[in-house]
Design a protein around this nucleic acid. Structure first.
Lengths: 252, 252
DNA sequence: GCAAAAGTGTTCGCACTACACCCATGA
DNA sequence: TCATGGGTGTAGTGCGAACACTTTTGC
């Protein structure tokens, strides 16, 4: 939601005189069970616009950059304000600064993307003007937000192929099959369970616990824990590319 | 160069009231022969600060975001203004928005990084206040610009491992050995000529010409031409990660 | 002819794939 | 005991690393 409302009826000359407004927006991903299959799929929360421009359309949560917050803090704050949740992963996506993104005033949006643990995501607040949507096949959004979501999706999938991202979508303890389900949900393809297991066992930061998941229909699988850093606060991160200096990516 | 000078002696309360200033900076890379070995190495142009803060120190070229330019255009403009050159590659690096990057006013810098063809780079203007420096082992720069350059270097190296980036540092026609030299200069390691050649021949967008480079001491090597797109104007690009949707990376 | 770079061929090891197979459990 | 997912073994495959080798030029 770009808060263009603080611009008082700008005319052309005013518009040219004013500096571009600076806003922060966030693309928030979480795993939720699909309505049909019940298998985990990607969802994200959107906010309904209650003013012009694009009144009535759905948009990414966001707002102006508050003075006392760093960019990252501002993104985390606006995540908390809309969903009530704290991100388990948060990273800058891109700065969008096209000349005509907003019809009234020129707005430069610095966009972050975040992952929220599925165990917490169930507690997320919904309301008349805040709802979760499936990440693919979105309707038309306000501003250039479709483009932004698509880019965020691309980046998420990219990161998933390399980095240790998947665990941020799960709870503290998880089975290897759950991790595999995350991969399959995000990447939209089947993954061989046997090979996937072997790859994970080679990677650092994944350690087995003594516990097993009970209550399933079959043999109880072992639970694992992720012991990597909590959240990357710095640029990029491979996937391709991209990631902070001195933090080479790990597989898978 | 962050133009903090348009802030008229801000005191604390004024500072809190003002919105953060928005600036564009650019990290510009080009290949130049090393002073010692004569082999190509990475250089970048810096601008001397002629006002406080950090008066006398060197800084990245930059300035406020001009109203009529997109972010990318603004970066290209400030590249042209400082070096007189046009970039052969230009991509957004990161938005830096820490609270205390500039001592006077809060500044959010959207930073781009660029590659300039070596054939053109020789024509670049230098002056008292604009000079080229070797990209590694830089002295202390103004603001957080050391950090920014290091991140840009990391990103360049990352992209080099995947993408088709190297050609943007060369002229229109080049030998395969020259491409290899670029890789070696940027990545700081030896590359096997035989394997490197084979890899390049498999990649698209590299086509042989009928010409050979004359004047060498030995057997004249064939010249090649790069036929890919001119410049990526969109986000990221793998390597890692990062890159526009629908543009998977190619090897090498 | 000799030195050195251009360019080719061949082998090795490794990581990923595919798929067959055993194991443990709930119903 | 049977169905099902957990978990292991193993052979095939493609790609990059390493390096020996041939070719072509300048001196």
């Amino acid at each position: 939601m770009e808060r263009t409302e603080f611009v008082s009826a700008a005319n052309i000359s005013e518009r040219l005189a004013q500096p571009p407004a600076l806003a922060i927006s966030t693309v928030i991903f979480a795993l939720r069970p699909s309505e049909k299959t019940g298998r985990p799929t990607l969802w994200l929360p959107l906010v309904r616009r209650i003013r012009e421009p694009f009144k009535g359309l759905w948009a990414l949560p966001g707002g102006p950059l508050t003075q006392a917050d760093s960019l990252q803090d501002a993104a985390a704050r606006n995540l908390r304000d809309t969903t009530g949740l704290a991100p388990s992963y948060l990273e800058q996506l891109y700065a969008f600064g096209g000349l005509h993104r907003s019809p009234s005033q020129r707005v430069v949006s610095i966009v972050y993307w975040a992952l929220v643990q599925s165990t917490e995501a169930e507690l997320a607040q919904e309301s008349e003007n805040v709802q979760w949507f499936r990440a693919d096949g979105l309707q038309e959004l306000a501003f250039d937000h479709n483009e932004i979501v698509n880019y965020a999706l691309w980046r998420l999938r990219n990161k998933m192929e390399y980095g240790s991202i998947a665990y941020h979508l799960l709870g503290e303890k998880f089975t290897l099959a759950q991790v595999r389900e995350v991969y399959e949900a995000v990447l939209n393809r089947k993954v061989d369970p046997a090979n996937f297991r072997r790859q994970l066992k080679q990677t650092p930061y994944i350690e087995p616990t003594d516990e097993f998941l009970q209550g399933g229909k079959h043999r109880p699988p072992r639970l694992y824990r992720y012991t990597g850093e909590d959240a990357h606060t710095w640029p990029g991160g491979k996937a391709g590319d991209i990631g902070p200096p001195g933090h080479p990516p790990s597989r898978p």
